[in-house]
């Protein structure tokens, strides 16, 4: 009966992002959600628990504003949550997040398996999972789209560019999952209502240990824009040559 930790990030909901007429992207009116692939990790944890028993703890490192995400995460199956929060955590880079997670997990949360999404919906750096495994000194399996658990052995199918690799790993281990692994459940009404009753362990400012000065700075955020032009070419050989030349000049073809 494995004790599973599943990590999630409370990220900007990309559906709410609207570019301004100036091309700038303002994030002051956007909503937040559990990062897309982390929902797959939460679902994978819930399914493993349904099949094998054990426990699931959801953990996130964020600013106190991410408190809203805890109920959302808890409505998706975990038994409890751990909320590592500090107002200073608003621009963490992946190495810092991994170090914070590792510190809290090492000190407070016994585990057999850690599940992470392959990458976050915002940065998609794909670093927190592998770095966390490195910090904890445990094996890490990435790009996983299928998990089978047999006792303390985990079989994972890795979806790679040129095929599927099946690896066997002894627990404790860390796995990062792809969206193909499952379809995350939509929590039912009772799941949401019961989420409020589940315990949340809060690791507040200063309790996580270490200094985490902001190293990431967003200098600018601009939307890509599509330029529309209406140019007419005659439908003859010369016109076609003109069209090809125009496309080449604009860089649309090589």
């Amino acid at each position: 009966m494995p004790d599973i930790i599943t990590c999630f990030k409370w990220a900007v909901d990309e559906a709410d992002i609207r570019p301004q007429a100036s091309g700038e992207v303002a994030l002051d009116r956007v909503g937040y959600k559990i990062s897309e692939y982390d929902r797959n990790a939460l679902e994978a944890a819930a399914q493993l628990k349904e099949a094998h028993g054990g426990s699931v703890t959801a953990i996130t490192v964020a600013t106190p504003a991410a408190k809203k995400g805890l109920k959302d995460a808890l409505s998706r199956g975990p038994d409890r949550a751990c909320f590592v929060n500090d107002a200073a955590f608003d621009a963490l880079e992946p190495a810092q997040t991994a170090a914070l997670l590792a510190g809290v997990i090492r000190d407070r949360l016994p585990f057999d398996l850690i599940l992470c999404g392959e990458g976050s919906s915002d940065l998609y750096a794909q670093q927190v999972g592998p770095r966390l495994a490195q910090e904890l000194g445990i094996p890490c399996v990435t790009y996983v789209n299928r998990i089978t658990l047999e006792g303390s052995t985990l079989l994972a199918e890795r979806k790679l560019e040129d095929g599927i690799e099946v690896v066997k790993v002894e627990l404790p281990a860390l796995v990062t999952v792809l969206p193909d692994i499952n379809t995350p459940r939509i929590p039912g009404l009772k799941d949401t209502l019961e989420a409020s009753k589940k315990p949340v362990q809060s690791v507040g400012p200063g309790e996580a240990g270490g200094e985490f000065p902001a190293r990431l700075q967003t200098v600018a955020l601009r939307a890509t824009s599509m330029e529309r032009r209406c140019v007419r070419f005659p439908a003859d050989d010369a016109g076609i040559r003109e069209l090809v030349e125009a496309l080449r000049k604009s860089g649309a073809i090589g």
Binding site: K68, K71, I186, L189, T192
Partner: peptide, 17 residues
């Protein structure tokens, strides 16, 4: 409330799906 917002988001996702 947080619960109501979650319930709204969940039923919205359900309807879209």
């Amino acid at each position: 409330t947080e619960e109501q917002e979650l319930i709204r988001a969940n039923i919205r996702e359900f309807c879209q799906q």
